[in-house]
Computed example of a mutant assay.
Amino acid sequence: MIIMSVDLGKARTGIAVCDKTEFLASPYTVIFEKSQKALPNKVAQAAKDVKAELIVVGLPKNMDGSEGECAQNARAFAETLRELTGIETVMQDERGTTVTAHNFLNTTNTRGKKRKNVVDEVAATIILQDYLDSRKNGLK
């Protein structure tokens, strides 16, 4: 099944995808969009372009596991995306993914503007890989 993930951001939204084998998540693109009205349509178009059969949306929980305003916004976004695309959407805890993405970019010595432009894409890849791993282990 082709699965696409979304790392929702205020200005940049990272997109990652895996192929039908569900083995490895790969970065796909970053959508630069500040309008919360326009963003769902752009993400829906990306889902159509990659022929996604399932969409995983990162759920930004607080470190104690509670859900705040950002998590509520992510859930609402996922529902809007499901309505627009007709594709099942699921939530994936994304705690720590941005930190992990920055650590990865440190090891690859990615700096400056390039780093800012790819960190969301890398975070989306981590979200998707975490989801794929949990499916393999029978947790999803």
Rank of each mutant, 00 (worst) to 15 (best):
Met1Glu: 06
Ile2Gln: 01
Ile2Met: 04
Ile2Cys: 05
Ile2Arg: 06
Ile3Trp: 10
Met4Asn: 07
Ser5Cys: 02
Leu8Thr: 09
Gly14Asp: 09
Ala16Asp: 00
Ala16Val: 05
Asp19Gly: 10
Lys20Ala: 15
Phe23Val: 15
Pro27Ala: 11
Pro27Leu: 10
Pro27Asn: 10
Thr29Trp: 13
Val30Ala: 09
Ile31Ala: 11
Ile31Pro: 07
Ser35Trp: 09
Leu39Ser: 08
Lys42Thr: 12
Val43Glu: 01
Val43His: 04
Ala44Ser: 15
Ala47Cys: 15
Asp49Ala: 10
Asp49Gln: 13
Asp49Glu: 15
Lys51Asp: 08
Lys51Trp: 10
Glu53Thr: 11
Glu53Tyr: 14
Val57Ser: 03
Val57Pro: 03
Val57Leu: 05
Asn62Gln: 13
Met63Lys: 08
Met63Cys: 03
Asp64Lys: 05
Glu67Lys: 13
Gly68Gln: 07
Glu69Arg: 02
Cys70Asp: 12
Gln72Asp: 05
Asn73Met: 05
Arg75Gly: 01
Arg75Ser: 01
Ala76Leu: 03
Phe77Cys: 03
Thr80Phe: 12
Leu81Asn: 07
Arg82Phe: 14
Glu83Ala: 12
Gly86Thr: 05
Ile87Cys: 10
Glu88Gly: 10
Thr89Lys: 04
Val90Met: 02
Val90Trp: 02
Asp93Gln: 07
Glu94Gln: 02
Glu94Asp: 03
Glu94Asn: 00
Gly96Glu: 00
Thr98Trp: 08
Thr100Arg: 02
Ala101Thr: 08
His102Ala: 06
Phe104Met: 15
Leu105Met: 08
Asn106Thr: 08
Asn106Gln: 09
Thr108Phe: 15
Thr110Cys: 13
Gly112Ile: 00
Lys116Asn: 12
Asp120Val: 00
Glu121Leu: 12
Ala124Cys: 02
Thr125Cys: 03
Tyr131Ser: 08
Leu132Lys: 04
Leu132Gly: 03
Leu132Pro: 04
Ser134Trp: 07
Ser134Pro: 12
Arg135Pro: 12
Lys136Pro: 02
Gly138Pro: 10
Leu139Met: 10
